[in-house]
Amino acid sequence: MPIVSYFIKRFLQAAFVVVVVSLLVAFAIRMTGDPAMMMLGESANITEADLHNIREQMGLNRPFLVQYWGFMSGLFSGDLGDSFFRGAIAPLIWQAMKATMLLAIISLGVSMLISLPLGIYAARHKNSWGDQCIRILSLTGLSFPNFWLGIMLMLLFSVTLKWLPVSGFSGASSLILPALTIGIILTASNLRIIRSAMLEVLNSQYVMVARAKGLSEHRVIYRHALRNSAITIITYLGLQFGALMGGLVVVELVFNWPGMGTLAIESIAQRDYPILQTVVTVLAMLIVFVNLLVDVAYVMLDPRIRLE
């Protein structure tokens, strides 16, 4: 199959996924409660007529599919419209998106920088003291809930040592603690996957063949083994991306980071459908896009996998 039609097909599949996800969310959030009630509060004297009026203004009296169509056509014409409680959506999403992506990319990058060399080392020196130490350390890193780790780092670096800001988004120094929190947990799990993927490959026939051919160990590891274990590693990273986005929610809350996670949590609490729909749809697009990249990477790394 030619590469162009492959991409067209994948793109259509991705679009399908985004549409289904946004439909699901738009539908589910409408099951959880009435934003008109939220707007009028807990006070007395609320009449059905008042509620009806508010729903009318919010456009909630229209049929579900009409509401959904309004939302999607707005999304693709670039007009995100207004939220129920917080003004225009576009600047909100843009600001949150920047904050979250910054945090995600930095923590993922730092974690790969640490876990890749350590993981390769551990696989090459399997069962050595170094390997065992790396293993115990990484498993320890997996034993903390992210909010607990975040609070502990905050108490140490911000309260006791007073080196770093506690929370919020104010300059590069405020990025360190949340990135460290996510980074530690990511590194711990990445290390395990990389070590395991490398082990699979190091024991495989082609690496043995490469060794038998007398290639240098360095060349064996970095040209042959790493390239071949990359499939597993990249699959895992692709999978992690969605989980990372979810895990960010909690860390963002702890550090009061103004990202997509906090925005989503708040809009769920307020039943602000327009924001939540947009947040989840944008996240879905992002995740689908990353997984598309993963599929493309497969093909590039292993030509034996046919384009289908």
């Binding site: 996924v17 996800v21 969605g242 989980a243 979810g246 895990g247 997984n291």
Partner: peptide
């Protein structure tokens, strides 16, 4: 893909 695109939390 649909499942992956929905953040768990």
């Amino acid at each position: 893909d649909i499942q992956l695109a929905l953040p768990f939390i």
